Amino acid sequence: MTKLFLLAGALLCATAVKAQQSPMKLMACEGKAQGTYYIVKYLSADTTSLQPRIDSIFHVIDQSLSLYKPGSVINQFNETGRVQMDAHMKAVIEKALSTNKATNGLFDITVKPLVYLWGFGVTKPGFKGVPPTDSIKAARTLVGSRYLRVKGNELYTIKKGVQIDCNGIAQGYTVDVIGHFLASLGIENYLVDVGGELCAHGHNHLHKVWSVGIERPSPGDTTYEPVQGLVRLPDKGIATSGNYRRFFDLGRTRFAHTIHPLTGIALHNNIISVTVIAKDCFTADAFDNPLILMGVDKGMAFIDRHPEYGLEAIYIYKDKDGTIKETFSKGFKQYMEF
């Protein structure tokens, strides 16, 4: 008994010495990718920078899903109507089609002709402002995930001219891919942020659950001067859709880059933003656009009716009198640090 106790004590001492020799350090990588910034933070005893490998992940995903990359897999599809998908594109397409079905068409990657028509695409139309009604009507004839088919690794369309735009979901997917990469290296504590879409796992260097900032209105505000609110992310993903990033104003109406795929009209309701928490960033990013199109009441009802998606959300919006307000889903407040 004594020998066993002494041996166990020696092992504990050796482990403690090893831990002292290799303390976990907070590491950070940051840069630009996918038209925005990225920041990756993680705890590791190895101080070798992972930046080159993270940049490589962005490069590979861009070769698959970027509309800005000539020859990318998605651009090949948009040019020919048929393509052999790689693993990244297949994962995104499958998620997009399932989300399209779940939201009755409010999430639709075939919305590309409308996105470009409204001036939010890679190329700009030859006019500014609201597109002509007949142009919207013509573009809508090419919108509908019902025109897409997947057979094995092949994606094709049954209607000529149908094109896809995965920007409404690709960043959330990329966030999770980077998170899985870190986990594959044995890194258990990390935070990944790509343009405000994030996932977190474990704890930070202060041994606390990772916290991220979101913009919230001051009580009774009518001008939307946001203050910072903190959200805890215990092994969750978070994504935000809003009308304050890409938009144009026409008179007193603000048209945002989120296009309603069933009407062809750019978002111009009273919603300022919706922030969604889910089990992963891929899911949160998939549902943030449909939820902002639904509006507060229908969006909250959707979350309540579909617990299988694990969604929680906060809406920030203007009331009828112009006052900025916020509405939480039932479970969102547990993540807030007021």
Rank of each mutant, 00 (worst) to 15 (best):
S44Q: 07
D55R: 05
Y68C: 11
T36D: 11
S49A: 12
M27D: 01
K25I: 13
Y42I: 09
Q21V: 14
Y42F: 15
D46A: 14
Y68M: 13
V60Q: 07
K18C: 14
K18F: 13
Y38M: 05
D46P: 02
V40G: 00
D46Q: 04
L65A: 08
K69G: 01
G31C: 09
I54Q: 01
P23L: 05
M27A: 08
Y68P: 02
I57D: 01
P52N: 09
K32T: 07
L65D: 02
K32P: 00
P70F: 09
Q20L: 10
V60W: 03
S49K: 11
Y42M: 04
P52V: 09
M24I: 15
Y68V: 11
V60Y: 03
Q51D: 08
M24N: 09
T36G: 03
L43N: 00
T36F: 14
M27F: 11
T36S: 07
Q51V: 01
S49Y: 03
L43I: 04
M27C: 10
L26S: 15
D55M: 14
V40S: 02
S56G: 14
H59L: 13
L50W: 00
T36R: 03
V60E: 12
S56N: 15
M24D: 10
Q63E: 05
S49I: 06
A45S: 12
L26R: 11
Y38F: 15
S66L: 00
K41F: 02
L67V: 07
K18V: 09
K41H: 04
I61W: 00
S56V: 08
M24K: 14
D55H: 10
L43A: 01
V60D: 03
V60S: 09
A19M: 11
L67N: 02
D46N: 14
K41D: 06
I54L: 09
G71L: 05
L43G: 06
L67C: 04
S44Y: 03
A28R: 14
Q51H: 06
K25A: 14
S64N: 01
P23R: 03
I57N: 03
A19L: 09
P52F: 14
A33W: 09
E30L: 01
D55E: 15
V40C: 10
K32I: 02
S22E: 15
L26G: 04
S64A: 08
H59W: 10
A19V: 13
A33R: 02
S64H: 00
H59T: 05
S66Q: 01
P23A: 11
L26T: 13
I39E: 06
V40A: 05
I54F: 10
T47Y: 13
L43D: 01
G31P: 06
R53N: 11
A33D: 06
K41I: 09
G35H: 03
G71Q: 08
L26H: 10
S72P: 04
E30N: 08
D46S: 11
S64G: 04
R53V: 02
C29R: 03
I57Y: 07
F58N: 02
G35F: 00
L67W: 00
P23N: 07
A45K: 08
I54H: 05
T36N: 07
Y37H: 07
S44N: 13
L26M: 15
S56Y: 12
G71T: 08
Q63F: 07
D55T: 10
P52W: 05
S72Y: 02
G71A: 12
T36C: 13
D55W: 05
Q63Y: 00
S72H: 09
L65Q: 07
Q34I: 13
M24V: 15
D62G: 09
T47A: 15
